[in-house]
Amino acid sequence: MHEDISKNQEVLINNKSVNTKQFSAFYLDNRLYGIEVSRVQEVVRSMTMTPIPLAPDYVRGLINLRGQVATAIGLRELFGFHEQLPDEFINIVCKIDGMLISFQVDEIGDVIEVSEEDFEQTPQTISDNIRRYMIGVYKISNSLLSAIDVDNIIKFLNHKT
């Protein structure tokens, strides 16, 4: 089976082959999340949004990215973090099936490289409204990176709209 090098890298550590992935890390409610770098087109600061009448609260509006329209999805609202909405959001723009989707997050982190050896299934202690959008978690230094499943979010959005 041929591995896609853009998504996975094979690294030799202590003479053992280890598969790694890179995630674009971000924060929601001071919790660390990540989207695979290969899924991210760009990261931009808050932009003017055009509201969509009668849309669910997590569909925050439409933004114009140099002539291309992206649907802005508030991950805070989607995950159920309704308290303390920040004044400004960071947009993580992903191109999925020819559509631009902007996931709005509290703040952006670094690109984090993780080893498949540090992967664990999503803990049952994470609420269902977040767990359904996760691939799992990666142990990194003194924290956990919750890996977001962009495809599950898109499936949910396509069935709700």
Rank of each mutant, 00 (worst) to 15 (best):
H2D: 15
E3M: 13
E3Q: 12
I5Q: 13
I5V: 13
S6I: 10
Q9M: 12
E10C: 10
V11P: 00
L12K: 11
N14G: 11
N15Q: 14
N15A: 10
K16Q: 14
Q22R: 13
A25T: 14
A25E: 09
F26I: 00
F26H: 04
L28Y: 03
L32Q: 08
L32K: 09
G34M: 06
G34T: 05
I35P: 06
S38R: 09
V40G: 03
E42V: 05
M47L: 13
T50G: 07
P51T: 06
I52S: 00
Y58P: 00
I63H: 01
L65G: 00
L65Y: 05
G67N: 08
Q68V: 06
A70D: 03
T71M: 11
T71P: 02
I73K: 00
I73M: 04
F79L: 04
G80H: 08
E83P: 02
I90K: 14
I90T: 15
I92T: 05
G98E: 11
S102L: 03
F103E: 07
Q104T: 15
E107C: 06
I108Q: 08
I108E: 05
I108L: 15
G109C: 05
G109E: 04
E113F: 05
V114N: 03
E116F: 10
E116K: 09
E117S: 11
D118P: 04
Q121F: 12
T122M: 02
T122N: 02
P123E: 03
T125C: 11
T125P: 04
I126Q: 02
D128A: 09
Y133N: 07
M134N: 07
I135F: 09
G136M: 08
V137P: 01
Y138H: 04
S141T: 12
L145E: 05
S146V: 08
A147N: 04
I148F: 05
D149E: 14
D149L: 06
N152I: 04
K155N: 14
F156L: 02
L157W: 11
T161L: 15
